[in-house]
Design a protein around this nucleic acid. Structure first.
Length: 630
DNA sequence: CTAGGGTTAG
């Protein structure tokens, strides 16, 4: 079922384009195709060849190889073994080449074991060997070992260079240790003999972006512009991507034009970042413009470009359109991959169309080696959200049988599913199971389980679990406290909730709107309406302004406490801020109106859809009374 | 022969 229409432009050229039919895209003789999604459209220009033709020059200029090209770890080990048997032994450079190639395949532990074999065979190492080794430990999140390799440099009288330091900076960043990464960077600047390169800058820029600190990243970019080491495509693309992820697409586009003004040409990665930004905002027209723009520059959309599109369409509920994009990919010889199908599957899951989700999963299974932990987790998540826990559990066992190791995310999904169907025992069993399998629960796992316990009125077990979490070195975030404070309030332990709430700042945590709203609700439940109102005022002062939910909660709280005198003022405040009452609150207000407790002049300001309904109700209760005066 | 940027799951 495809809700997609195609319009083709009238200008016929020799180049071809494709038109949608029930079986796929057909070739037409025109130079562009418009895919219409409701009122939005995509235009794809098909002047490009299906597959970019590789330059024959590079093929002719291939350097001759004395060793076969390594495409997998097995080959690497074989070649390595043969080299070890050669006499005289090949130079360290030859060994470095092997290590480098295996590292590029991301088989970092394999590199380490190869390196250890080199040591046994008394092959010397140089700066290259050790830098590759450091990089491997970095990617394995083993900074301790990386640093001990650094120690080896000095022991062997070798000088770490800009590659070594950049690798170390990257390692710290991968472990989220931005301060230490910046420390190395600053020492390089101060040292004088090993200045950061554009890659070093780019690495640190990425670090700031990872922390969500775009302004620090941009500041560093500006510093580069002033100095000798000018920012390159990667540095710009990193920041553009980060801005897009924060939905700051306009800023990203400004940086994008700035980059091009400096003569730096974008590539497919830059465009994919921008595509991601505009698609996540549902700006399909802008996405179409970008697609056309990139193709016009001979930058061809790749599988990731389309994946971004597929994913965004699915998340917007436009799965049919997403399917269309997938078929278009196939037509254009861009093979959909695991990510493509997983996104599509998630799209069906989101709409509760589990049959179709399962069908996509079956398709992936039939293609072999396409299903991974993420695709299993996605389908499991779909079943969990539909409360189909048996199917979800079956998949968990099935993936394990296939040698796929369920990770923390997989378990979190399942624990959440069990909690939502009230099977707290099963949730706790999974919680133990994951730890037995070496999958460590994270803050999110605890949040899920704590929420489940609180919602199922097991507050004492929740407190126990919270203490267990504190015992491990997991830092509770504000989400954890929101859950606990809410749980305590539901359990009518308002005093305990207050204690937690007012102790937040001493734990270095900032209450957010949700925290305050939960606390206001709790205070109202406890009959402390004036304290609740005080908190509402403080929210404004502390730069955490209340939202419509906060107002609805406090108004309901006041009404439930029969504090009707202050209700009118609160409603006024709410509507002044452009918020409206939800159905529940409106009902309560209408009841009050019926008893002449609030000013009926406020009624038209209530939620519109309930207004009509409740007016008729009002007529039954009210006769010719005069409006309440105050 | 060594270092930095993009898509999927809670």
């Amino acid at each position: 079922m495809l809700k997609m229409m195609i319009r083709t432009t009238t200008a016929a050229t020799s180049s071809s384009c494709y038109c949608w039919s029930s079986r796929g895209m057909n070739c037409l003789h025109s130079n562009s195709t418009f895919l219409v999604f409701g009122n939005n459209y995509f235009a794809f220009f098909h002047s490009q060849p299906s597959k970019p033709i590789k330059s024959t020059r590079t093929q002719l200029e291939q350097p001759k190889r004395d060793l076969p090209k390594i495409t997998n770890v097995e080959d690497a080990f074989n070649v390595f073994d043969r080299m070890l048997q050669m006499r005289p032994l090949p130079s360290v450079v030859r060994f470095n080449k092997i290590l480098g190639q295996v590292a590029k395949l991301k088989h970092y532990s394999a590199v380490i074991s190869l390196y250890n074999q080199m040591g046994v065979s008394r092959i010397g190492h140089d700066v290259y060997t050790l830098t590759i080794l450091i990089n491997c430990y970095c990617h394995l999140n083993q900074m301790g070992f990386s640093l001990s390799v650094l120690g080896k440099f000095f022991k062997l009288g070798l000088e770490p260079d800009v590659f070594t330091f950049t690798t170390l900076i990257n390692g710290f960043l991968l472990e989220n240790r931005v301060a230490e990464a910046a420390g190395i960077f600053n020492k390089m600047i101060a040292g004088g003999n090993c200045q950061p390169s554009v890659v070093t800058y780019g690495t640190l820029v990425k670090g700031f972006c990872m922390k969500g600190n775009n302004s620090a990243a941009i500041q560093l970019l500006r510093k580069m512009e002033e100095g000798a080491c000018k920012p390159d495509l990667v540095v710009y693309s990193t920041i553009i991507d980060s801005l897009c992820k924060d939905t700051l697409v306009d800023d990203a586009l400004n940086l994008f034009s700035e980059m091009m003004c400096k003569g730096i040409a974008p590539d497919v990665i830059t465009y994919n970042a921008l595509m991601n930004g505009v698609c996540k905002l549902g700006e399909w027209k802008e996405a179409a413009r970008l697609l056309n723009e990139m193709v016009s520059k001979n930058i061809f959309p790749d599988v990731r470009t389309f994946n971004v599109l597929v994913d965004a369409l699915c998340k917007e509920g436009m799965v049919g359109e997403a399917e269309g994009v997938v078929e278009m990919m196939i037509e254009r010889d861009i093979e959909p991959n695991t990510v493509t199908y997983t996104s599509l599957m998630d799209g069906f899951c989101l709409r509760g169309e589990m049959g179709k989700a399962k069908k996509i999963f079956g398709l992936m299974l039939s293609k072999g080696s396409m299903v991974n932990v993420v695709s299993y987790s996605t389908l499991i998540n779909g079943y969990c959200k539909r409360k189909m826990m048996d199917e979800a559990m079956t998949l968990l066992r099935e993936m394990s049988c296939k040698g796929l190791v369920p990770n923390t995310v997989t378990y979190n999904t399942l624990v959440d599913g069990c909690c939502k169907v009230g099977k707290l025992g099963d949730a706790q069993k999974l919680f133990s199971e994951m730890q037995a399998c070496g999958q460590l629960p994270n803050v999110r796992t605890y949040a899920i389980l704590l929420d489940g316990l609180c919602k199922n009125r097991q507050i004492s077990t929740a407190i126990q679990l919270f203490k267990e979490m504190e015992g491990k070195k997991l830092d509770a975030d504000i989400v954890i406290y929101n859950i606990l404070i809410e749980g305590l309030c539901i359990a009518k332990k308002i005093e305990f909730a207050r204690e937690l709430f007012f102790g937040l700042s001493s734990r270095g945590l900032q209450p957010n709107v949700r925290t305050c709203t939960i606390m206001i609700n709790g205070l109202c439940i406890g009959g402390r309406t004036s304290e609740a109102e005080k908190l509402l005022t403080e929210m404004e002062e502390k730069g955490c302004p209340p939202n419509d939910c906060t107002y609805n909660i406090i108004i309901r709280g006041f009404i439930n406490n029969n504090e009707t005198v202050r209700v009118t003022g609160l409603i006024q405040q709410m509507v002044e801020k452009g918020f409206s009452a939800d159905a529940w609150t409106t009902e309560l207000i209408v009841e009050l109106l019926a008893k002449d407790k609030v000013d009926p002049a406020l009624l038209p300001l209530m939620q519109k859809e309930n207004y009509e309904l409740n007016l008729s109700q009002l007529k039954l209760n009210r006769s010719s009374d005069h409006p309440n005066k105050h």
